[in-house]
Design a protein around this nucleic acid. Structure first.
Lengths: 344, 344
DNA sequence: TTGTAAGCGTTATCAA
DNA sequence: TTGATAACGCTTACAA
């Protein structure tokens, strides 16, 4: 259990003052004579010196750290997002503290407090939708907040990175409509969430474009947690005039929904055409492979990190930025024309 | 951008000294008169005071943080593990800094340095297998290291949490053997890894128990990264005397392997009986649902966190501990008796 | 039981 | 271009 060398040890060994060493460490903070710089660098190397993050943080008042607040790392979408963000951050010398909320506002509030204690420079989050004042306080304390995937309508002045939710839902729905389907089930997130709203909006817009009326019974907004997807599938298929198409636009409920379809023994696409939101790695391993809306996770990660880092370095105009990236529709084999669908 | 209150502000407002406030914050560090304690608590609440983590870290020399170093968060196994660890840590007031190595020793070394800078109290990791001296240095600096899932043979004095690898592979293999299969392919991790070795060991042990000789050609140790699983599948099935059973014991290569099976159009279990390591959420959504070895991820998470925290608080005997948890074999529909398998 | 004051390892200010 | 030295906010002897 040795003690690590400090900046003072380095200074002493190099025969200079601590300020010189500090300036070698942070070049933009001041000039250093080339000769001394070499000497210092040599000593640093020899001693294996590394600056203590805590000391720097205390002095600077801010940590080279961003908080990542996601709902559920076990969800492949968030997991991949986290993977990319962690990776990207590392290349900028920034560490990521990960928190999970499990969609619970209390845990979210807790997480934010903790991140505040750590004086993180920024937070990337998929907000639960609650804690509006908490988010505001966080911002007022100088923490840069970027929402990814979802946002909170009440909260202005916050950067947002998401896919084109309205458009994605519209395209998926139009695909079904153009195949002749007229009763299309939609399983989406809570209407209280930005994604839930936007995707319903897109679904409706598509119907309007095709001059088809929408049946409220076919729209199911279910919570992200729990088995709501499966239940919705069950009740949709139990409808007297059951849908011939199904769009699962709630990323967290895709698995639950598909599991139920498999359990019930629904033949896809003969009995039901299916499109799901988000290209989980397994969606092409089912039979048939599922047609999906593929979220460009890498883009989401890169942009959100770019935004926090940009704000951290004050290199961005103050106006909040909203970045919407396009999500691809990836047709596979889970949709077929209505004519070929079982006529009952 | 307000400035947060400090311990001094609290002390002043409560009419006490900073040490009293500190003692209220850390009860075990000394006594406080009940009356003053209440007063301080009141002020803390009123001011919304929260101690700055960096200041405490600098003072005590250690952070209430553990580093989590995994190979790839995009892999559902690691993602779920991370989710549980983060969750569990939170309930102990500990934060988790996540790093990914992508199985690259350089990135791993980098990550360890960074964690050292942060003075983390402990590290939970799935080591690449390299960086032995780096791990040792980390320990010598007082950082508690716990390996989870895999370990490094050369490194003693380190806690390890894993499944019963030998036994799991043995049980999977015996299942196949008892179904009459005599040529069973094994796709596993590199022999340089503890899991790779152990699982091959279990595979061989099962064969011995059944007095069946093993064909080296059937054993494929492939890297965790890349498409080695798929390639191994391809070459195994191209063998003149091709296997009738396949065990994929490389968690990171399951997807690649199964994808290839699907691409080739192999009928499971008619053409090939299959067992894969790790119950990814989708393994029961394929057709047929796959028989799997299920790793008790929650147990792995709980134990590894328990170990780091235990060591952090010095509540554990110095001897390194090895915890092996049992992995369940979950039979589904991807294995059939040899007699029913296509006779060629 | 309480208060004073000395660290902890950086950065930043300001003379020199 | 350099070097003292004062923060930064907390913990912890040590005195009282």
């Amino acid at each position: 259990m040795k003690k690590a060398p400090t900046i003072r040890d380095v200074a002493a060994a190099a025969g200079v003052s601590v300020s010189v060493v500090s300036r070698v460490l942070n070049p933009e903070s001041g000039p250093v004579a080339p000769a001394k710089r070499e000497a210092v660098l040599g000593v640093i190397n020899e001693l294996g010196y590394r600056p203590r993050a805590a000391a720097r943080e205390l002095s600077v008042g801010q940590a080279l750290t961003v908080g990542l607040v996601v709902a559920d790392l076990a969800n492949p979408f968030f997991a991949q997002l986290a993977d990319r963000i962690v990776w990207e951050a590392r290349s900028h010398g920034v560490q990521v503290v990960v928190m999970t909320t499990q969609e619970d506002p209390h845990l979210e509030a807790d997480s934010l407090d903790t991140l505040l204690d750590r004086s993180v420079a920024g937070v990337i989050a998929t907000p639960t939708g609650a804690n509006v004042e908490k988010w505001e306080r966080l911002q007022s304390m100088g923490v840069n907040v970027v929402f990814v995937d979802r946002t909170i309508a009440e909260l202005e002045d916050v950067d947002v990175v998401s896919i084109e939710n309205v458009d994605s839902a519209r395209r998926a729905t139009e695909h079904m409509l153009s195949l002749g389907h007229r009763r299309i089930g939609l399983i989406t997130g809570p209407v209280s969430t930005s994604t839930g709203q936007a995707r319903i909006h897109g679904y409706r817009a598509a119907h309007e474009a095709f001059s088809v009326s929408t049946d409220p019974q076919l729209i199911r907004d279910v919570p992200f947690r729990g088995d709501g997807g499966g239940d919705a599938v069950g009740s949709l298929l139990a409808l007297p005039d059951r849908p011939t198409g199904l769009i699962v636009a709630n990323t967290a409920q895709v698995q639950s929904s598909v599991r139920r379809l498999v359990q019930i023994g629904v033949q896809i696409p003969e009995d039901l055409s299916v499109i799901v939101f988000d290209d989980n790695p397994w969606t092409e391993l089912t039979s048939p492979p599922l047609s999906v809306i593929r979220q460009p996770i890498g883009m989401l990660a890169v942009h959100s990190l770019e935004l926090v880092l940009g704000r951290m370095h004050g290199k961005l105009p103050p106006a909040p930025r909203t970045i919407e990236v396009k999500a691809d529709f990836v047709p596979r084999s889970s949709c077929s024309p209505l004519l070929l669908t079982t006529t009952r």
